[in-house]
Design a protein around this nucleic acid. Structure first.
Lengths: 222, 222
DNA sequence: GCGGTTCTAGTACCCCGGTACGACAGCCGC
DNA sequence: GCGGCTGTCGTACCGGGGTACTAGAACCGC
Protein backbone atom coordinates (compact mmCIF):
# COMPACT_ATOMS: atom_id res chain seq x y z
CA UNK A 1 0.00 0.00 0.00
CA UNK A 2 1.40 3.35 -1.06
CA UNK A 3 0.75 6.20 1.34
CA UNK A 4 0.53 9.66 -0.14
CA UNK A 5 0.61 13.13 1.38
CA UNK A 6 -1.21 15.75 -0.68
CA UNK A 7 0.31 19.21 -0.57
CA UNK A 8 -1.63 22.01 -2.24
CA UNK A 9 -2.99 25.32 -1.08
CA UNK A 10 -6.23 24.91 -3.00
CA UNK A 11 -8.80 22.79 -1.15
CA UNK A 12 -10.60 21.76 -4.32
CA UNK A 13 -7.37 20.63 -5.90
CA UNK A 14 -6.63 18.50 -2.83
CA UNK A 15 -10.10 17.07 -2.98
CA UNK A 16 -9.63 16.07 -6.58
CA UNK A 17 -6.38 14.32 -5.87
CA UNK A 18 -7.87 12.59 -2.85
CA UNK A 19 -10.76 11.24 -4.87
CA UNK A 20 -8.41 9.94 -7.53
CA UNK A 21 -6.04 8.30 -5.09
CA UNK A 22 -8.74 6.79 -2.91
CA UNK A 23 -10.24 5.14 -5.98
CA UNK A 24 -7.10 3.03 -6.24
CA UNK A 25 -6.91 -0.01 -4.01
CA UNK A 26 -3.14 0.14 -3.68
CA UNK A 27 -3.05 3.73 -2.50
CA UNK A 28 -4.18 5.66 0.50
CA UNK A 29 -4.03 9.33 1.42
CA UNK A 30 -1.96 9.74 4.56
CA UNK A 31 -2.89 13.38 4.97
CA UNK A 32 -3.14 16.82 3.43
CA UNK A 33 -1.10 19.97 3.80
CA UNK A 34 -1.97 23.46 2.58
CA UNK A 35 1.52 24.94 2.59
CA UNK A 36 5.18 24.02 2.69
CA UNK A 37 5.74 24.29 6.40
CA UNK A 38 2.82 22.02 7.11
CA UNK A 39 4.12 19.60 4.51
CA UNK A 40 7.53 19.36 6.14
CA UNK A 41 5.94 18.76 9.51
CA UNK A 42 3.50 16.13 8.26
CA UNK A 43 6.14 14.26 6.33
CA UNK A 44 8.25 13.77 9.43
CA UNK A 45 5.16 12.84 11.39
CA UNK A 46 3.33 10.58 8.94
CA UNK A 47 6.31 9.37 6.93
CA UNK A 48 4.31 8.82 3.73
CA UNK A 49 5.84 7.01 0.77
CA UNK A 50 5.18 9.92 -1.55
CA UNK A 51 4.51 13.61 -1.13
CA UNK A 52 2.48 15.09 -3.99
CA UNK A 53 3.86 18.60 -3.95
CA UNK A 54 2.41 21.74 -5.48
CA UNK A 55 4.94 24.51 -6.09
CA UNK A 56 3.09 27.77 -5.76
CA UNK A 57 1.93 28.07 -2.18
CA UNK A 58 1.75 30.90 0.34
CA UNK A 59 4.58 30.95 2.85
CA UNK A 60 7.07 28.14 2.33
CA UNK A 61 6.83 27.11 -1.31
CA UNK A 62 7.05 23.61 -2.70
CA UNK A 63 10.67 23.87 -3.75
CA UNK A 64 11.92 24.88 -0.35
CA UNK A 65 9.68 22.32 1.31
CA UNK A 66 11.13 19.66 -0.97
CA UNK A 67 14.65 20.72 -0.09
CA UNK A 68 13.95 20.39 3.62
CA UNK A 69 12.23 17.05 3.29
CA UNK A 70 15.12 15.64 1.29
CA UNK A 71 17.67 17.18 3.63
CA UNK A 72 15.92 15.58 6.59
CA UNK A 73 16.79 12.23 5.11
CA UNK A 74 13.24 10.96 5.29
CA UNK A 75 12.41 8.09 3.02
CA UNK A 76 9.54 10.08 1.57
CA UNK A 77 9.88 10.74 -2.16
CA UNK A 78 8.68 14.05 -3.47
CA UNK A 79 6.72 14.21 -6.70
CA UNK A 80 6.30 17.78 -7.82
CA UNK A 81 3.12 18.79 -9.59
CA UNK A 82 2.59 22.15 -11.14
CA UNK A 83 0.24 23.81 -13.56
CA UNK A 84 2.83 24.90 -16.08
CA UNK A 85 5.94 23.07 -17.08
CA UNK A 86 8.16 26.06 -16.63
CA UNK A 87 11.79 25.21 -16.78
CA UNK A 88 12.81 27.17 -13.75
CA UNK A 89 10.38 25.29 -11.58
CA UNK A 90 11.45 21.95 -12.88
CA UNK A 91 15.13 22.62 -12.54
CA UNK A 92 14.71 24.07 -9.09
CA UNK A 93 12.63 21.08 -8.06
CA UNK A 94 15.13 18.59 -9.36
CA UNK A 95 17.96 20.45 -7.70
CA UNK A 96 16.00 20.35 -4.48
CA UNK A 97 16.01 16.59 -4.70
CA UNK A 98 12.55 15.77 -6.00
CA UNK A 99 12.04 12.31 -7.47
CA UNK A 100 9.73 13.52 -10.14
CA UNK A 101 8.08 16.38 -11.90
CA UNK A 102 4.70 16.23 -13.62
CA UNK A 103 2.21 18.75 -14.92
CA UNK A 104 -1.26 18.83 -13.42
CA UNK A 105 -3.04 18.48 -16.72
CA UNK A 106 -1.53 15.02 -17.18
CA UNK A 107 -3.92 12.13 -17.63
CA UNK A 108 -4.97 10.54 -14.31
CA UNK A 109 -3.33 7.29 -15.38
CA UNK A 110 -0.06 9.07 -15.96
CA UNK A 111 -0.28 10.66 -12.56
CA UNK A 112 -0.99 7.36 -10.86
CA UNK A 113 1.77 5.64 -12.79
CA UNK A 114 4.09 8.43 -11.74
CA UNK A 115 3.22 8.00 -8.09
CA UNK A 116 3.80 4.25 -8.27
CA UNK A 117 7.12 4.72 -10.03
CA UNK A 118 8.32 7.24 -7.49
CA UNK A 119 7.17 5.09 -4.60
CA UNK A 120 9.23 2.18 -5.88
CA UNK A 121 12.37 4.26 -6.07
CA UNK A 122 12.20 5.27 -9.69
CA UNK A 123 11.88 8.77 -10.99
CA UNK A 124 9.50 10.38 -13.43
CA UNK A 125 9.66 13.52 -15.47
CA UNK A 126 7.06 15.09 -17.70
CA UNK A 127 7.76 14.17 -21.33
CA UNK A 128 8.01 17.81 -22.31
CA UNK A 129 10.91 18.21 -19.95
CA UNK A 130 12.61 14.91 -20.60
CA UNK A 131 13.88 16.18 -23.92
CA UNK A 132 15.88 18.94 -22.32
CA UNK A 133 17.03 16.61 -19.61
CA UNK A 134 18.40 14.24 -22.20
CA UNK A 135 20.18 16.99 -24.06
CA UNK A 136 21.86 18.16 -20.90
CA UNK A 137 22.69 14.61 -19.99
CA UNK A 138 24.21 13.87 -23.37
CA UNK A 139 26.67 16.70 -22.85
CA UNK A 140 27.70 15.19 -19.58
CA UNK A 141 28.36 11.75 -20.97
CA UNK A 142 32.03 10.79 -21.02
CA UNK A 143 32.12 10.79 -24.85
CA UNK A 144 31.37 8.18 -27.47
CA UNK A 145 34.87 6.80 -27.34
CA UNK A 146 35.90 5.15 -24.14
CA UNK A 147 34.69 5.41 -20.60
CA UNK A 148 36.99 7.90 -18.98
CA UNK A 149 40.52 7.12 -17.98
CA UNK A 150 39.38 4.31 -15.79
CA UNK A 151 41.19 4.05 -12.51
CA UNK A 152 43.67 1.25 -12.96
CA UNK A 153 44.42 -0.11 -9.56
CA UNK A 154 45.30 -3.70 -8.90
CA UNK A 155 42.55 -3.93 -6.31
CA UNK A 156 39.93 -2.44 -8.60
CA UNK A 157 40.99 -4.60 -11.49
CA UNK A 158 39.77 -7.72 -9.69
CA UNK A 159 36.23 -6.40 -9.54
CA UNK A 160 33.56 -7.34 -12.03
CA UNK A 161 31.72 -4.59 -13.89
CA UNK A 162 28.75 -4.92 -11.62
CA UNK A 163 30.90 -4.73 -8.52
CA UNK A 164 32.70 -1.65 -9.80
CA UNK A 165 29.35 -0.08 -10.53
CA UNK A 166 28.20 -0.73 -7.00
CA UNK A 167 31.46 0.45 -5.48
CA UNK A 168 30.94 3.71 -7.32
CA UNK A 169 27.63 4.41 -5.66
CA UNK A 170 28.95 3.24 -2.31
CA UNK A 171 31.54 5.95 -2.85
CA UNK A 172 28.68 8.38 -3.31
CA UNK A 173 27.29 7.50 0.07
CA UNK A 174 24.40 5.25 -0.89
CA UNK A 175 23.18 2.79 1.72
CA UNK A 176 22.51 -0.83 0.87
CA UNK A 177 18.80 -0.10 0.96
CA UNK A 178 19.14 2.74 -1.52
CA UNK A 179 21.29 0.68 -3.83
CA UNK A 180 18.71 -2.10 -3.74
CA UNK A 181 15.86 0.29 -4.52
CA UNK A 182 17.49 2.23 -7.29
CA UNK A 183 19.06 -0.79 -8.94
CA UNK A 184 15.95 -2.91 -8.41
CA UNK A 185 17.76 -5.59 -6.46
CA UNK A 186 17.06 -7.39 -3.23
CA UNK A 187 19.01 -6.06 -0.29
CA UNK A 188 20.51 -9.49 0.17
CA UNK A 189 21.93 -9.27 -3.33
CA UNK A 190 23.45 -5.91 -2.57
CA UNK A 191 24.99 -7.33 0.58
CA UNK A 192 26.48 -10.17 -1.40
CA UNK A 193 28.04 -7.74 -3.83
CA UNK A 194 29.31 -5.48 -1.08
CA UNK A 195 30.80 -8.44 0.75
CA UNK A 196 32.70 -9.51 -2.32
CA UNK A 197 33.88 -5.98 -3.01
CA UNK A 198 35.25 -5.70 0.51
CA UNK A 199 36.95 -9.08 0.26
CA UNK A 200 38.53 -8.36 -3.11
CA UNK A 201 39.72 -4.88 -2.23
CA UNK A 202 40.88 -5.83 1.24
CA UNK A 203 38.61 -3.26 2.81
CA UNK A 204 37.36 -3.79 6.33
CA UNK A 205 34.06 -1.98 5.85
CA UNK A 206 32.31 0.29 3.40
CA UNK A 207 34.05 3.34 4.84
CA UNK A 208 37.41 2.02 3.70
CA UNK A 209 35.83 1.13 0.38
CA UNK A 210 34.74 4.75 -0.01
CA UNK A 211 38.28 5.89 0.72
CA UNK A 212 39.59 3.45 -1.85
CA UNK A 213 37.10 4.73 -4.39
CA UNK A 214 38.32 8.27 -3.87
CA UNK A 215 42.00 7.38 -3.80
CA UNK A 216 41.73 5.50 -7.08
CA UNK A 217 39.68 8.29 -8.64
CA UNK A 218 36.83 5.86 -9.25
CA UNK A 219 34.79 8.54 -7.52
CA UNK A 220 35.86 12.12 -7.88
CA UNK A 221 35.36 14.92 -5.40
CA UNK A 222 32.34 17.05 -6.20
CA UNK B 1 -1.57 10.09 -37.99
CA UNK B 2 1.67 8.79 -36.59
CA UNK B 3 3.60 6.45 -38.87
CA UNK B 4 5.79 3.87 -37.22
CA UNK B 5 8.55 1.60 -38.46
CA UNK B 6 8.95 -1.58 -36.44
CA UNK B 7 12.52 -2.85 -36.16
CA UNK B 8 13.03 -6.22 -34.49
CA UNK B 9 14.66 -9.46 -35.55
CA UNK B 10 11.91 -11.58 -34.01
CA UNK B 11 8.84 -11.94 -36.26
CA UNK B 12 6.50 -12.63 -33.36
CA UNK B 13 7.70 -9.53 -31.57
CA UNK B 14 7.03 -7.47 -34.67
CA UNK B 15 3.60 -9.02 -34.98
CA UNK B 16 2.77 -8.09 -31.40
CA UNK B 17 3.78 -4.51 -31.91
CA UNK B 18 1.89 -4.32 -35.17
CA UNK B 19 -1.31 -5.57 -33.54
CA UNK B 20 -0.96 -3.06 -30.74
CA UNK B 21 -0.26 -0.13 -33.03
CA UNK B 22 -2.95 -0.97 -35.58
CA UNK B 23 -5.50 -1.04 -32.77
CA UNK B 24 -4.93 2.67 -32.31
CA UNK B 25 -6.74 4.98 -34.69
CA UNK B 26 -4.04 7.60 -34.63
CA UNK B 27 -1.23 5.24 -35.59
CA UNK B 28 -0.23 3.20 -38.54
CA UNK B 29 2.64 0.82 -39.24
CA UNK B 30 4.73 2.13 -42.11
CA UNK B 31 6.80 -1.02 -42.35
CA UNK B 32 8.93 -3.61 -40.64
CA UNK B 33 12.65 -4.27 -40.57
CA UNK B 34 14.43 -7.34 -39.21
CA UNK B 35 17.89 -5.82 -38.75
CA UNK B 36 19.74 -2.54 -38.52
CA UNK B 37 20.76 -2.24 -42.14
CA UNK B 38 17.21 -2.76 -43.31
CA UNK B 39 16.02 -0.21 -40.76
CA UNK B 40 18.37 2.47 -42.05
CA UNK B 41 17.25 1.82 -45.59
CA UNK B 42 13.54 1.82 -44.81
CA UNK B 43 13.74 4.98 -42.75
CA UNK B 44 15.18 6.94 -45.64
CA UNK B 45 12.63 5.40 -47.96
CA UNK B 46 9.46 5.53 -45.86
CA UNK B 47 10.33 8.50 -43.61
CA UNK B 48 8.20 7.30 -40.70
CA UNK B 49 7.58 9.56 -37.70
CA UNK B 50 8.96 7.03 -35.29
CA UNK B 51 11.24 4.02 -35.53
CA UNK B 52 10.59 1.46 -32.81
CA UNK B 53 14.08 0.05 -32.47
CA UNK B 54 15.18 -3.20 -30.87
CA UNK B 55 18.82 -3.29 -29.81
CA UNK B 56 19.93 -6.87 -30.07
CA UNK B 57 19.84 -7.83 -33.72
CA UNK B 58 22.08 -9.82 -36.03
CA UNK B 59 24.35 -7.74 -38.22
CA UNK B 60 23.92 -4.03 -37.66
CA UNK B 61 22.55 -3.59 -34.14
CA UNK B 62 20.02 -1.04 -32.97
CA UNK B 63 22.55 1.37 -31.54
CA UNK B 64 24.54 1.67 -34.71
CA UNK B 65 21.36 1.88 -36.79
CA UNK B 66 20.14 4.70 -34.57
CA UNK B 67 23.43 6.51 -35.01
CA UNK B 68 23.17 6.35 -38.76
CA UNK B 69 19.54 7.41 -38.86
CA UNK B 70 20.23 10.41 -36.68
CA UNK B 71 23.39 11.27 -38.62
CA UNK B 72 21.41 11.18 -41.85
CA UNK B 73 19.35 14.06 -40.55
CA UNK B 74 16.03 12.35 -41.14
CA UNK B 75 13.08 13.66 -39.23
CA UNK B 76 12.41 10.19 -37.92
CA UNK B 77 12.68 9.88 -34.15
CA UNK B 78 14.11 6.70 -32.76
CA UNK B 79 12.51 5.07 -29.74
CA UNK B 80 14.68 2.27 -28.44
CA UNK B 81 13.02 -0.77 -26.96
CA UNK B 82 14.91 -3.51 -25.22
CA UNK B 83 14.21 -6.40 -22.95
CA UNK B 84 16.39 -5.35 -20.06
CA UNK B 85 17.14 -1.89 -18.82
CA UNK B 86 20.87 -2.34 -18.95
CA UNK B 87 22.77 0.83 -18.40
CA UNK B 88 25.20 0.37 -21.21
CA UNK B 89 22.42 -0.02 -23.72
CA UNK B 90 20.62 3.02 -22.48
CA UNK B 91 23.69 5.20 -22.42
CA UNK B 92 24.81 4.00 -25.80
CA UNK B 93 21.35 4.57 -27.22
CA UNK B 94 21.09 8.06 -25.84
CA UNK B 95 24.56 8.90 -27.06
CA UNK B 96 23.55 7.64 -30.47
CA UNK B 97 20.80 10.23 -30.50
CA UNK B 98 17.69 8.24 -29.67
CA UNK B 99 14.65 10.20 -28.53
CA UNK B 100 13.63 7.60 -26.02
CA UNK B 101 14.36 4.38 -24.29
CA UNK B 102 11.75 1.98 -22.96
CA UNK B 103 11.75 -1.60 -21.75
CA UNK B 104 9.63 -4.15 -23.57
CA UNK B 105 7.81 -5.31 -20.48
CA UNK B 106 6.24 -1.88 -20.13
CA UNK B 107 2.47 -1.65 -20.15
CA UNK B 108 1.02 -1.22 -23.65
CA UNK B 109 -0.37 2.17 -22.62
CA UNK B 110 3.08 3.30 -21.60
CA UNK B 111 4.47 2.18 -24.88
CA UNK B 112 1.79 3.98 -26.84
CA UNK B 113 2.19 7.11 -24.75
CA UNK B 114 5.92 6.90 -25.38
CA UNK B 115 5.45 6.71 -29.12
CA UNK B 116 3.10 9.68 -29.12
CA UNK B 117 5.48 11.70 -26.98
CA UNK B 118 8.42 10.94 -29.22
CA UNK B 119 6.43 11.68 -32.35
CA UNK B 120 5.54 15.10 -30.98
CA UNK B 121 9.15 15.94 -30.34
CA UNK B 122 9.31 15.06 -26.69
CA UNK B 123 11.52 12.39 -25.21
CA UNK B 124 10.77 9.45 -22.97
CA UNK B 125 12.89 7.30 -20.74
CA UNK B 126 11.98 4.21 -18.77
CA UNK B 127 11.25 5.13 -15.15
CA UNK B 128 13.92 2.75 -13.92
CA UNK B 129 16.52 4.69 -15.84
CA UNK B 130 15.15 8.14 -15.18
CA UNK B 131 16.42 7.94 -11.65
CA UNK B 132 20.01 7.60 -12.69
CA UNK B 133 19.52 10.19 -15.34
CA UNK B 134 18.29 12.63 -12.75
CA UNK B 135 21.18 11.89 -10.44
CA UNK B 136 23.66 12.51 -13.19
CA UNK B 137 21.79 15.63 -14.21
CA UNK B 138 21.72 16.98 -10.70
CA UNK B 139 25.48 16.70 -10.55
CA UNK B 140 25.77 18.67 -13.72
CA UNK B 141 23.67 21.53 -12.44
CA UNK B 142 25.71 24.52 -11.33
CA UNK B 143 24.11 24.52 -7.87
CA UNK B 144 21.44 26.81 -6.47
CA UNK B 145 23.36 29.96 -5.62
CA UNK B 146 27.10 30.20 -5.75
CA UNK B 147 27.52 28.10 -2.64
CA UNK B 148 28.74 24.54 -3.04
CA UNK B 149 32.41 24.41 -2.09
CA UNK B 150 32.02 27.33 0.21
CA UNK B 151 28.89 25.96 1.75
CA UNK B 152 30.76 22.83 2.67
CA UNK B 153 33.52 24.83 4.21
CA UNK B 154 30.83 26.63 6.13
CA UNK B 155 29.65 23.31 7.47
CA UNK B 156 33.17 22.44 8.53
CA UNK B 157 33.54 25.84 10.13
CA UNK B 158 30.78 24.97 12.58
CA UNK B 159 32.88 22.18 13.98
CA UNK B 160 35.03 22.58 17.05
CA UNK B 161 38.73 21.77 16.81
CA UNK B 162 38.22 18.45 18.48
CA UNK B 163 35.39 17.55 16.14
CA UNK B 164 37.41 18.49 13.09
CA UNK B 165 40.24 16.37 14.43
CA UNK B 166 37.93 13.41 14.79
CA UNK B 167 36.33 13.95 11.40
CA UNK B 168 39.81 13.77 9.91
CA UNK B 169 40.47 10.30 11.26
CA UNK B 170 36.96 9.20 10.37
CA UNK B 171 37.97 10.21 6.87
CA UNK B 172 40.93 7.90 7.20
CA UNK B 173 38.68 4.99 7.96
CA UNK B 174 39.08 4.67 11.69
CA UNK B 175 36.28 2.95 13.62
CA UNK B 176 34.89 4.41 16.80
CA UNK B 177 36.78 1.80 18.78
CA UNK B 178 40.08 2.74 17.17
CA UNK B 179 39.48 6.42 17.72
CA UNK B 180 38.73 5.76 21.38
CA UNK B 181 41.87 3.67 21.84
CA UNK B 182 44.30 5.96 20.06
CA UNK B 183 42.85 9.13 21.52
CA UNK B 184 42.46 7.60 24.99
CA UNK B 185 38.75 8.25 25.13
CA UNK B 186 35.73 6.19 26.05
CA UNK B 187 33.82 4.88 23.08
CA UNK B 188 30.74 6.67 24.32
CA UNK B 189 32.65 9.92 24.09
CA UNK B 190 33.63 9.18 20.55
CA UNK B 191 30.03 8.42 19.71
CA UNK B 192 28.97 11.73 21.18
CA UNK B 193 31.51 13.55 19.04
CA UNK B 194 30.56 11.64 15.93
CA UNK B 195 26.89 12.31 16.52
CA UNK B 196 27.53 16.03 16.77
CA UNK B 197 29.71 15.99 13.67
CA UNK B 198 26.97 14.30 11.69
CA UNK B 199 24.36 16.72 12.97
CA UNK B 200 26.44 19.81 12.24
CA UNK B 201 27.52 18.71 8.78
CA UNK B 202 24.14 17.33 7.82
CA UNK B 203 25.59 13.93 7.15
CA UNK B 204 23.41 10.86 7.48
CA UNK B 205 26.16 8.52 8.57
CA UNK B 206 29.93 8.32 8.76
CA UNK B 207 30.16 7.32 5.11
CA UNK B 208 28.76 10.68 4.07
CA UNK B 209 31.07 12.34 6.55
CA UNK B 210 34.01 10.66 4.84
CA UNK B 211 32.80 11.94 1.50
CA UNK B 212 32.49 15.42 2.95
CA UNK B 213 36.00 15.18 4.34
CA UNK B 214 37.34 14.34 0.90
CA UNK B 215 35.25 16.89 -0.95
CA UNK B 216 36.40 19.67 1.34
CA UNK B 217 39.98 18.51 1.13
CA UNK B 218 40.06 18.03 4.89
CA UNK B 219 41.37 14.62 3.96
CA UNK B 220 43.44 14.27 0.83
CA UNK B 221 43.69 11.23 -1.41
CA UNK B 222 46.74 9.15 -0.65
C1' DG C 1 29.40 34.29 40.24
C1' DC C 2 26.93 32.75 36.34
C1' DG C 3 25.85 31.23 31.76
C1' DG C 4 27.55 29.31 27.58
C1' DT C 5 30.68 26.20 25.28
C1' DT C 6 33.36 22.21 24.99
C1' DC C 7 34.93 17.79 26.23
C1' DT C 8 34.13 14.04 28.64
C1' DA C 9 31.19 9.83 29.97
C1' DG C 10 27.36 6.91 30.78
C1' DT C 11 22.99 4.02 29.65
C1' DA C 12 19.56 2.18 26.74
C1' DC C 13 17.80 1.11 22.43
C1' DC C 14 17.35 0.06 17.50
C1' DC C 15 18.82 -0.63 12.93
C1' DC C 16 22.04 -1.16 9.37
C1' DG C 17 26.12 -3.32 7.85
C1' DG C 18 28.79 -7.30 7.44
C1' DT C 19 29.35 -12.35 7.64
C1' DA C 20 28.35 -17.04 6.78
C1' DC C 21 26.14 -20.03 4.91
C1' DG C 22 23.20 -22.23 0.79
C1' DA C 23 20.94 -22.02 -3.69
C1' DC C 24 19.88 -21.36 -8.64
C1' DA C 25 20.05 -19.55 -13.44
C1' DG C 26 22.62 -17.90 -17.35
C1' DC C 27 26.69 -17.64 -19.81
C1' DC C 28 31.20 -18.82 -21.54
C1' DG C 29 35.18 -21.55 -22.40
C1' DC C 30 37.43 -25.88 -22.45
C1' DG D 1 28.51 -31.47 -21.76
C1' DC D 2 30.67 -29.84 -17.83
C1' DG D 3 32.79 -26.68 -14.69
C1' DG D 4 33.70 -21.96 -13.42
C1' DC D 5 32.28 -17.29 -13.16
C1' DT D 6 28.75 -13.97 -12.42
C1' DG D 7 24.63 -12.19 -10.80
C1' DT D 8 20.77 -12.97 -8.27
C1' DC D 9 18.18 -14.11 -3.74
C1' DG D 10 17.36 -16.11 0.76
C1' DT D 11 17.98 -16.86 6.03
C1' DA D 12 20.21 -16.25 10.28
C1' DC D 13 23.24 -14.02 13.35
C1' DC D 14 26.01 -10.51 15.60
C1' DG D 15 28.35 -6.43 16.38
C1' DG D 16 29.17 -1.71 15.41
C1' DG D 17 27.10 2.60 14.40
C1' DG D 18 23.85 6.06 15.42
C1' DT D 19 20.31 8.25 18.45
C1' DA D 20 18.38 10.03 22.56
C1' DC D 21 18.81 11.16 26.55
C1' DT D 22 21.45 12.79 31.03
C1' DA D 23 25.38 14.68 33.41
C1' DG D 24 29.74 16.27 35.41
C1' DA D 25 34.09 18.98 34.87
C1' DA D 26 36.84 22.52 32.94
C1' DC D 27 37.19 26.83 30.77
C1' DC D 28 35.95 31.46 29.21
C1' DG D 29 33.72 35.89 29.01
C1' DC D 30 30.49 39.05 30.83
Amino acid sequence: MTTVLIVDDQPMQRFGFRMLLESQDDMTVAGEAANGAEAVRLVSELRPDVALMDIRMPGLDGIEATRRIVAAGDRTRVLILTTFDLDEYAYAGLRAGASGFLVKDAQPEELLAGIRAVASGDAVVAPSLTRRLLDAYAEKLPAPGETDALAQDARLAQLTDREREILTVIGQGWTNTEIAERFHLAESTVKTHVGRILAKTGSRDRVQAVILAYDTKLVKPS
